[in-house]
Design a protein around this nucleic acid. Structure first.
Lengths: 205, 205, 205, 205
DNA sequence: TATGAATGAGTCTTCATTCAT
DNA sequence: TATGAATGAAGACTCATTCAT
């Protein structure tokens, strides 16, 4: 396994990521991945045996990436409001940097039961950990009466809904006004702050 | 075109709707549509020439359906808050009754540029009309200072985001807790009211 | 299903029989079958979906043919010796007319466990019936002391061994002397009578 | 060529023997041979250039082995009956110890004309020698009238037929009764003696 | 001598589409 | 209008063989 091998394998993986994210499993052709990776068609099978196998590797990586994107804020010395604001903003930025990630995963989960199971197996423990990491903080706030009683999962769901949706439904919403991609970036920045505001509002008792 | 012909054509269309909504364009096989419609494989091509053609008809119908689902409330004698509450609730219910609609359209738009154009051509005028129908009401409220300055499109986007997302991302969110489909319905009802609350909150100055 | 359809399907089956018998499953190419049947490559899959499926149909037919080739003699008014002589001779002639049959089945059974099961499921009941049909006659002869005590299966095995082998091992034996195919036919006729003689000898007490 | 080379070459040959005997030329994959030999896939081609070449070496070895298995009895001081009995029994035991040998060769001869020629070229002189070694003994017996007039080849054919067949057709015959492998060994021992008996019977005038 | 990487030719299979009737 | 048959193009995958090192 010298450097060149790793490169080829990695090239295929990178190409596969791009094409799968762009077109989804069904419409992706292995020839296109190979072409983009600059290798022969058969090399793809040499390294990954089947299209499905290659897809699974990509899919699992992406699932891990998405699931780990929720909450990773250093809480020391910050108020709950601050923590939430930072976490929501960061999460929004991450999703923005990986626009195709969420639509890809959602779509593949919808198209294949097996992918759904993969998502559950990988994401569930990660989400549980996230919930655990904020439950004490939330409980304290609830006792103080600064936020209304709710589970961490409710909070997560609200954040996810608000943050992911603009990118999942980007093509749906973009047409509301004729905007260039650059204008859209400005809109997204507004939306980020709007989302932060909405999340905090949703926490109010 | 006698009655039987219409029936056959309609049968194919109905079957195509079901299968396309379920599987998307790429993974749908014309044979499955024909089978579900109870007609010969070749009849599908006799009536609709190509798979793409048949899909476009279905897709346009569905786009129209989704685009028209926003705001259709009789405003006479109701406060703005009431109108918004009713509109959001009704929209949520519609989406709930047509769970596969939004994911289907979003996915197909993502997979094919032509579908994106179709969406724009059909949805844009409809959305413009909706915006027009509420802009006076909103302006009045804004002047009164009861809601913060915002365009109708902002409001629509918030509503759409909050309402559609639970169904687009259902498989993503369902795993946050282990829930049955029935339990999920209860959660959805809660979410509807939460969404109404959030929309109203987002309107606050 | 008009006549032409049946012909095409049958043409494929006939071609498949020839090629499979000639080359066995592994080295047979579906294109060759299609070519021999005078149809497009895809037609084969249209009618039989997979190569394996087509093979199974051919294989089952051939198994039935071979299994049913043992003993079908009208016994009325004939001595046991006569019955055996006729049965062995007829069986030999059948195998001779279908030289590739036995090698084909033996080979495929050896190459694929599933074929072995197919053989068992189809041949076992047929063989059991054959054994049943001669057991009374044999028991009577055994009681009379004209043949030595043995089960019908022993008899069948001897017949099968002697009759099938020349064709299974034809390429092995033909070289013992340089013979043309026609000379070989004469040899086979001698062998038939030799086999009848040997079977009768093997029955002696 | 140091010792290690010889070992590698021999390892490949040994592995090839096992796999070819087990699966035949067509379904054998060179990767499996390499794996079993514990060497790289490419080494196989380094030593033997092609799969076909490697096969031919194995095949020729096996042909020699089988052809030489007929008659190697020290005749001094033994009666013809004794010699035949011993020779048949030994041959049966050899075939039993090398069960896959005969089916393998027969099958490959049937599948490839070139293999048939190989068999002829190698086996013919060996068989001729065997025939020569017994023709005087047989002629003497024929003159004495103790056996009927026949050529050595007839005798060889009978022996080969009876001895090889149980192993070639084992899967065909095993189903006649439900037997375990151990029970089958007992049956084989009976068959050996039955075969000796039958050969002697076939020699009777 | 040895190896991992790479290749190209071939094989099965699917599927939208067209054709003859 | 309807159908079963037929087709061709494309796609995934395999595998013996070769190459660079």
């Amino acid at each position: 396994m010298n450097e060149k091998d790793l490169n080829t394998e990695q090239n295929i993986l990178n190409a596969a990521e791009q094409v799968f994210l762009e077109k989804g499993f069904a419409t992706t052709k292995t020839t296109e991945i190979a072409k983009k990776a600059g290798v022969t068609h058969a090399m793809l099978h040499y390294y990954f045996r089947t299209k499905e196998n290659l897809f699974n590797i990509v899919f699992q990586n992406k699932v891990r990436l998405l699931a780990n994107s929720f909450f990773s804020v250093d809480v020391t010395g910050k108020s709950f409001t601050e923590v939430v604001s930072i976490a929501v903003g960061r999460h929004f930025d991450f999703i923005k940097e990986n626009r195709k990630l969420a639509p890809f995963i959602i779509n593949e989960i919808n198209n294949n039961e097996k992918n759904s199971e993969t998502w559950q197996e990988i994401a569930q423990p990660i989400f549980a950990k996230v919930a655990e990491s904020i439950i004490d903080m939330m409980d304290a706030e609830i006792k103080k009466g600064t936020i209304r009683p709710m589970s961490p999962f409710d909070l997560i769901q609200t954040v996810v809904s608000l943050n992911i949706f603009p990118f999942v439904a980007q093509p749906l919403l973009k047409i509301l006004r004729h905007v260039t991609d650059e204008e859209y970036n400005v809109i997204l920045e507004q939306r980020k702050h709007e989302n932060i505001r909405l999340v905090l509002l949703s926490l109010q008792p």
